[in-house]
Design a protein around this nucleic acid. Sequence first.
DNA 1: GTTCAATAATAGTTTTACTATCACTAATAA
DNA 2: TTATTAGTGATAGTAAAACTATTATTGAAC
Lengths: 226, 226
Amino acid sequence: MKLQLQIEMNEALYLRNPEASELGKNILKHSVQLIYKAGFESFTFKKLAEEIGTTEAGIYRYFENKHKLLVYLTAWYWGWLEFQIIFQTNNINSPAIKLKKVIHLLAHAVEDDEQTHYINERLLHEIIIAEGSKAYLTKHVSEDNKQQFFKPYKDLCAVVGNIISEYNPRYKYPKTLASTIIEMAHLQNFFMHNLPSLTDFSGAKKEEELIGYLNDLVFNSLKKKG
Amino acid sequence: MKLQLQIEMNEALYLRNPEASELGKNILKHSVQLIYKAGFESFTFKKLAEEIGTTEAGIYRYFENKHKLLVYLTAWYWGWLEFQIIFQTNNINSPAIKLKKVIHLLAHAVEDDEQTHYINERLLHEIIIAEGSKAYLTKHVSEDNKQQFFKPYKDLCAVVGNIISEYNPRYKYPKTLASTIIEMAHLQNFFMHNLPSLTDFSGAKKEEELIGYLNDLVFNSLKKKG
DNA sequence: GTTCAATAATAGTTTTACTATCACTAATAA
DNA sequence: TTATTAGTGATAGTAAAACTATTATTGAAC
């Protein structure tokens, strides 16, 4: 039996479903590669079209503009990550172990899981680290939010927040702490690779140190007092 | 006596010093207003020139491109904030009180301090919240970093990190915790105004709740054990 | 009064972002 | 079978953004 993971995407994110055709899958595959290589700013539909061997207008039939494509990719990533977390914490009773698992999944380098041949999860993870926040840091966040573009991100935060509340029901900031560790897992990863003097991680096992920091942060915050 | 706060800026950030001429000061003043109003993506040198009553080429004499201008503004902001922190924690002995002061300064809405008539600090603070991370989230971070573009940010993190180490010299992640609270003070502010379901702050005193969260995070992390 | 440097005004070019049109192909439905 | 239509390809175009080059003007320094 071969399972095919399908993440259901908000239809308002695209004009034509990219997962429903070869060209569409090529757009996803090569946009991940191109954004990873050149960064989102210098990424254009023209370059993407050349890479794929189609035309600019061809891309525009799938995505309204490159920002919508970025939002699509981030939404896909959060959906994928939520699945990983739910799958890997399933049947674990201890919320402490669950939280550690979550932190590990958030901070550890992702390997391409081959589940979806047209998306390279490892590259996508790198894209989220460097470009993910640009999906919501816009003047039109509120409208985008009304259209539910960020639902996968919010769902993921809710899942993590629930584990936090499970571990310590009296903790006052479960959702904020959830978004803090999600964002910091990514941002500190960016810092340690690009602006290392901002972090305390320098050894060969940077990643493990980052996981250590996040664990320290979370479990000290959730310690029951009195 | 009237003090004029002058923040010394990295000369590689501009082509001609904007603080040394009327046109330059106008560029700073109106770019803050325009980016605040329309967001960095739709901000252009042409619109800025029209606003000021000069020409596009006039702006290009001061700044190479709009990204450099953003980096300039963020560098200015971090320099200004570092000064505020050093000034306001001066003569305080208790590192705990210093830390609380720092968190308050980071998370509390900024008022235009009139020290520099050509920069509206309140608007600039809002710009940093929504656009600040775009200054370093690029493919050319490392080169920019070599040119010391992010020195004011790193200096600020160092100042905060030192207070953290002062409070608990055995804490293993002072720099990481410093950048965490700086980034989270801004990002959670963005979330609570634009994606409120990601946070636990909903009341009329959102800002105080955010300060409460950051205090909780920091002082639980720094609690001495054993 | 001439020289030099900063600035202003004008007019470009190139690239990005996006749209419109027409032609071809393959599947599908009447 | 024919007509429809969904997807793709190719071409061409526009508007704005991003940036550059040229010449004219001012104003201060020698």
